[in-house]
Design a protein around this nucleic acid. Structure first.
Lengths: 347, 347
DNA sequence: AATCGAACCCAAAGCGCTTTGGATGGCAAA
DNA sequence: TTTGCCATCCAAAGCGCTTTGGGTTCGATT
C-alpha cells in the first residue's frame, strides 16, 4: 500500500540502491541497458523518490515559500493573490518545485521567516505586498534566505531582487491621457498608501498633474482598501463637492466598478459625462470586458508577474551570484468605453 | 550561518541528542531541570527541528496539500480560493502544519495526486471544486491518502468526508423569499452546472418554483463562470425578453453586480423595479456592504469553510477511524436593499 | 548489606535518499 | 604475459531527526 522505495526497487532489479539512484538521476557511470531497465521498472511501479529523504540528502528542499500576511485589523486577503500564485505555480510545477504557503498575521512575520529558515522547508521565498520601508528585506538578507520581492520597497537600504510593474509611469500615463482629453478635475482613488505600489501610483498621478500646472486638490485624492465599496464611497463624496471631478483614476477594477455604480446612480453616463481610467491586474475572475475593454485601463497581468517572480527566484537559487536581479514590467494603456472628452461645461 | 542542529545543541549542552530530543518533545524520562536548561538553550539559538529530517524519522510530513485545478480552457482561478486558503491556513498554522499548493491543469490531476502520494510530501489533501461525479474521490480512496472534500460529489459511490454549504436549501429559501414578495418571473444566474454546487443550487431554485406551481422557463435560467460580465450579459438578454424577469437569483456577488449594472443601465431601480438575491461567500475583498447589506443574500463564509475543512482533515489524520465525517453549513438569509415586492404591473 | 526500582541518560539503528571512495572485470597497450 | 585504464557497479557513510533498548546511579526495601 505504501509507495515503493528506492531500496525495494533496487532489490527487485538485483541492483544496488546506488546504481538505481544514479540511473534515475542521469549520472554517466551506468550502462545504458541497465539504465533503461531501471527507468522502465520505475515507471511500472510509479516510483517517485521520497521528497523528504531526497531533500535531506541533497540539502535542497525543492520548495518555495510564500508568506501571505494577513493584517489582523482588516483581515483581507489580497484579491490579486490567487492569480499571482497561479502564475508562480505554473513555473514551480514545470521545474519540479513545490509551493509552500504560510498565512501569517502581520505582526508575526519576522518570526515566520525565521522559522521557515530554521525548519529548512524551502529554498527561497517570495515577498508579497512590500511597504515603503519593509523590514522583511533586511531580515531575509540577514537570514541568507534567497528571495524575490513582488514590488519594491523604496526605502530599503540593502540591495534585493524584485519584479515590479512601473506603477509610477502607468499612473502618470493614465493621468496624462485624461488631461489630454481636457479633464482638469481628476480624482485619484488609490490603494492603501503605506503600500509601496500605492505611493508610486500617487507620485505618477501627481507628476502628471504638476507637469500641466493643475493644482493638487486633497479633496479629490483618497486611499483605502481597493474594494467596490471604497470606490462607491469615494465617488459619492466627491460627486457631492461644489466642483466635482470629471474623471477618476482608480487603482483597481473593483474600485472602478464602485465608482461606476455611483456615477450611474447620479444619472450620469460613463464615458460621456464622467471618465474613468483604472488599473487592471487582469485577474481571471475579474475581466475588463471581453474583446473590447469596458474600462480604459493601464493593464498588467499579475499572473505574468507571478511567473516572472518564480522564474527569477529559481534562477537565483541555482546561481546565487546572479542576485540581485530586477525586472520592470510596463503596463499598457488600453482604451475602453469609460473615457471621453471633458464635458464643455467643466472646461 | 546555517541553522543550528539538534546535535550541535546537544554538544553545547553536554547532552546526547536523544535527551535533547526528548526534552524538547515533552517526553517524561528527562529531569525537569535539564528540560528547562534545554528549552532555554533552544530558544536562545532559535532552534527549530529540521522539518525534512523530522518528517523522515516520524513518517509524518506535517503538511497538507491543496491541489488547485486550473482548467486550461477558461484559465480561471476560483475567486473564493484565496479566502478558503486563508481560513485553512489559520488552522494549519495553529496546529504546526504546513500548507502545500499544487497548481495543476485539469487533465493532470490524477497524476498530481499519485505523485503527491508517492513523494510523501503531505499527510492529506483537500479536494476543491468537486464535480457531480468526481473521479478524484475514488482515486484518493484507492491511494489511501486522507482527504476532505470542500463540497460534495453527488454521484460518488465511495464514502468520503466533506464540508459543504447547504446549497439546495439556501437557493430554495432565496427563491421562496422572492416568491413571497409576489415575484413570478424569477431568473437564475447560476455557476457552471458541471460543478456539484451549481447543480444543487438549481435544484433548490426549481424546487421552490415548483412548490408554488410556477412553470420552469429555460429562458430565465443561465449558467456560466460567475463573473461580473456574466451577470451583465445574462441580465441584458433577459431584460430584452417580451416578458422580462422581475427578480434575479445570482450565484455570486460578482454576478449580482453585473446584473445590477444592467438593471441600472435600463433606468430601472434595484429593489423597487427589480429585485436581486445573491449568494454571498463573504470574501474579504468583496463585501456585501458594511453594516447594512447592499444585496439581500444567502450568506456563508467560505473562509469559515476553509477552517472547518482543515480542522476536519487534521482530525481524520490523527484519528483515521473517525472518517468519513460530514459537516453541513447553513447559509443565513440576510435582507438588504436589493429586494422588494414585485411591481403590480407584473403580478 | 544485598536487592530492586525509579529516575535519567545514552548509544545506535533507522527513516529513504545521495554521494564518496572504492572494487571488479575486461580489453587494449606495452 | 603484464600493466593500466575504462566502464560498471557497489558498500558505506551521512543528511538531522526519532526511538528502541539498554546502561548507570541512587535512594528505598528487605
Amino acid at each position: 500500500m505504501s509507495p515503493i522505495t528506492l531500496k525495494e526497487l533496487a532489490a527487485e532489479l538485483g541492483l544496488s540502491p546506488t546504481t538505481v539512484s544514479r540511473a534515475l538521476n542521469g549520472y554517466p557511470e551506468v550502462n545504458e541497458a541497465t539504465r533503461t531497465r531501471v527507468s522502465q521498472a520505475a515507471a511500472r511501479h510509479h516510483y517517485r523518490p521520497n521528497t523528504r529523504a531526497k531533500a535531506l540528502a541533497t540539502g535542497r528542499a525543492m520548495a518555495i515559500g510564500h508568506v501571505i500576511p494577513i493584517s489582523t485589523q482588516h483581515e483581507i486577503v489580497n484579491p490579486i493573490f490567487a492569480d499571482f500564485i497561479a502564475g508562480a505555480g505554473e513555473v514551480y510545477a514545470r521545474e519540479g518545485y513545490d509551493m509552500l504557503l504560510s498565512i501569517v498575521p502581520d505582526a508575526e512575520q519576522a518570526r515566520a521567516y525565521r522559522e521557515i529558515r530554521a525548519k529548512g522547508t524551502v529554498d527561497g521565498v517570495i515577498v508579497h505586498g512590500p511597504k515603503e520601508n519593509d523590514e522583511r528585506i533586511a531580515l531575509l538578507v540577514e537570514l541568507g534566505l534567497p528571495f524575490v520581492v513582488h514590488g519594491r520597497s523604496t526605502e530599503a537600504k540593502a540591495p534585493y531582487s524584485w519584479v515590479d510593474v512601473n506603477n509610477t509611469r502607468a499612473f502618470q500615463r493614465a493621468t496624462e491621457f485624461l488631461l489630454d482629453l481636457g479633464h482638469r478635475r481628476i480624482a485619484l482613488v488609490n490603494g492603501l498608501e503605506f503600500m509601496d505600489f500605492a505611493i508610486r501610483r500617487r507620485h505618477g498621478f501627481e507628476a502628471a498633474m504638476a507637469a500641466r500646472g493643475v493644482p493638487r486638490d486633497p479633496a479629490l485624492m483618497v486611499q483605502g482598501e481597493m474594494t467596490e465599496a471604497q470606490g462607491a464611497h469615494a465617488a459619492r463624496a466627491m460627486l457631492a463637492l461644489p466642483s466635482p471631478p470629471t474623471a477618476f483614476v482608480c487603482a483597481s477594477l473593483l474600485s472602478a466598478m464602485g465608482v461606476r455604480r455611483e456615477i450611474e446612480a447620479h444619472g450620469l453616463k460613463l464615458g460621456r459625462d464622467i471618465s474613468i481610467v483604472t488599473h487592471d491586474d487582469e485577474l481571471g475572475y475579474l475581466r475588463n470586458g471581453e474583446a473590447e475593454p469596458i474600462f480604459t485601463a493601464t493593464r498588467s497581468s499579475v499572473r505574468e508577474a507571478g511567473r516572472r517572480c518564480a522564474a527569477m527566484l529559481l534562477g537565483i537559487i541555482t546561481d546565487p551570484a546572479s542576485a540581485p536581479r530586477h525586472e520592470m514590467l510596463e503596463a499598457v494603456l488600453v482604451v475602453g468605453r469609460s473615457t471621453g472628452p471633458a464635458p464643455p461645461s467643466a472646461r
